Simulated scan of single mutants.
Amino acid sequence: MMFGLAALSPFAAAAAMADTTTVTDVAGRQVTLETPVERVILGEGRQIYLLGALQPDAPFAGVVGWREDFSQADPDSYSRYAEKFPELLELPTFGGFKDGTFDVEQAASLSPDVVLMNLEARAATEDAGYDDKLAELDIPIVYVDFREDPLAHTIPSMRLMGELLGKQQQAEAFIDFSEEQLAKVTDVIAEANPERPSVFIDRAGGYSDDCCMSFGPGNFGEYVELAGGSNIADGIIPTTFGTLNPEQIIAANPDHVVVTGGNWDAYVPGGNWVGMGPGADMDAACTKLERLTQRTAMTGITAVEQGQFHAIWHQFYNSPYYFVAVQQLAKWLHPELFEDLDPEATFQELHERFLPTDYEPGYWITLDEQ
């Protein structure tokens, strides 16, 4: 492995005590490296969601560089991390593997033990030859995933990162909590076998004037099914991400619409996106959510007529907190079955037990309840 430091440095001493370990990443690749790793590059900034759950007291310990996306895609969370852990402001940042702006020489100069990459970037990484270039420098890539198939891959990814960092106990505690909380929904749905209301997930509604991005059978589409709903895009969108046209939505006449939202001022300043997230301005969110009911695709549909028009934090699609979203969806879809379920208390407990920052409300809203 490359450490690039003097023989008497702390990292060199740690290397002398390291074990050679072979792990299997979520791409099915076997990777041999020395663990616990001491110097990590995050191929996506939002991997800090996972890393922070493993080492909440010092989430950036060992991070020597990261992709510059966290501050843009989730600025509200970023600002809270930056306030508590200002060292993140000094970390070297990279462009993306997928857009070809990753700098291999810069990465090598940081002497990382491993580069953590998201699975969706694998094809671009290999097409650009980044994997071969890093291999020549003895810098391994390990793939994780909490976006393409979060239900299948988040727990293996958390377990994998726990092994790399020597944080296995923390990883298993988080996994136990997430499975326990998910079962509070799935066990009830399995026993009750309720009639399933139809749901349209409006992915990043208002982000652009186009309508409408959504999810097929994966990610939020799967969350809907777990929560006892029926995703109207299932069977139309064959993969995780895709688009429905307004006519398809009107014809499906969904019982519920759930808009995923976030603070995207960095991408679309002043856009019609619904700004969900920690500390969100709920009055502003309500105003924007109401505006989205006026689009052609929402004409005359049951969800609008009956006030079942909701918004939820977009980053539930790209974080290990998916079970909180499933709980909230279940509350919306089957209030009679989940009267005693409290997703906000679940998310607050998650923060208190596992996460680096304090909980603040602002992650979901229903139009007629404001």
Rank of each mutant, 00 (worst) to 15 (best):
E225R: 10
N231P: 08
P269M: 06
V304N: 04
I249G: 06
G242N: 02
T186Q: 01
M282H: 09
S208E: 07
N219S: 09
A303L: 12
G279N: 00
M213Y: 15
P246C: 09
A297T: 04
G261T: 00
G242M: 03
M298Q: 11
Y223K: 04
G229H: 06
F200G: 01
A233I: 07
D210F: 15
Q306F: 14
S214W: 09
R196V: 05
E191T: 14
C211N: 10
N272V: 05
D283I: 03
N245Q: 09
P269N: 01
Q181P: 03
E222A: 13
A204G: 02
Y207L: 15
T287S: 12
R295T: 10
Y267G: 08
G271D: 08
G262Y: 00
T302V: 14
A233V: 06
G242Y: 02
I175F: 15
A233T: 06
E247H: 13
E247M: 11
H256A: 10
G221F: 00
G275L: 02
S230M: 10
S198R: 15
A190C: 10
I232W: 00
V259G: 12
G205N: 03
A284C: 02
N231Y: 06
V268D: 01
G262T: 00
N231Q: 10
V274F: 09
G235D: 05
I175G: 07
K288S: 05
F220K: 03
N219T: 01
V268Y: 03
C211M: 09
V258Y: 10
S198N: 12
V224R: 10
K288F: 03
I201T: 07
T186D: 01
G277M: 04
T299K: 10
P254G: 02
A192N: 10
I301G: 04
T243N: 11
S178N: 09
G279E: 00
A190F: 14
T296E: 14
D281H: 06
G218K: 11
F177Q: 05
A192C: 09
V258D: 02
D209I: 04
A251W: 13
D202T: 04
D265K: 03
S214N: 08
